[in-house]
Amino acid sequence: MLEIKNLHVKLEEEDKQILKGVDLTLEAGKVHAIMGPNGSGKSTLSYVLAGRDGYEVTDGSAKLGGEDILEMDPEERAAAGLFLAFQYPVEIPGVGNMTFLRTAVNAQRKARSEDELSAADFLKLIREKAKSLKIDADMLKRPVNVGFSGGEKKRNEILQMAMLEPKMCILDETDSGLDVDAMKLVAEGVNALRDEGRSFLVITHYQRLLDHIKPDVVHIMADGKIIKTGGPELALEVENNGYADILAEVA
């Protein structure tokens, strides 16, 4: 599904290397987690994969379903099935959440030469999905993320994911800022989407989310590289001991 090889990324504006050779292969239907100290490059990796401006790939490659995505526009990557749940979802005053989602869903369908969803079908679908995430009608009408609480923003990200049904879902600290109940809701939302043809890359600092969304593989990222890869037990080790041992082991 996702194949990242020797990915090197620096900032466009300054001479600062952030990713220093990331290798990661994620098969269809699998859930991988990435953990790692603050500032190790996890969000940068997710942004580079999603196609945000401001980064320069100096070496390496990233393929989605065998296709090189690094040359694609962000919207092309989305249409190809990539989705990033942002660590910090963006507020967009003046653009209604509903309008935004309908535009996005239909733009992707169009890009894939599928028929657009009728207004009625769209409404039915979004109501159903919103309900399971406990997002009320009022939140759907409001401008995108404006005045949403931290937790509401994260749930809104999962709602978008549920509506867009991407193949490759990257979740960047979707658990941060969520209360215990909301975390369960989000995890249920994610688990409901788990499918043979769909993969997840879950960036998190805490084992707790991984209790709900069981990863197949856990990666530890430090200083722009994956320094260790293991099973779910690796997350427990981090939870109990922090990163010191792992960093020392590699050094």
Binding site: G51, A78, P89, F100, L101, T103, A104
Partner: peptide
Amino acid sequence: FYLRSRGV
């Protein structure tokens, strides 16, 4: 970017 990342 947020809008584009959703396929718009």
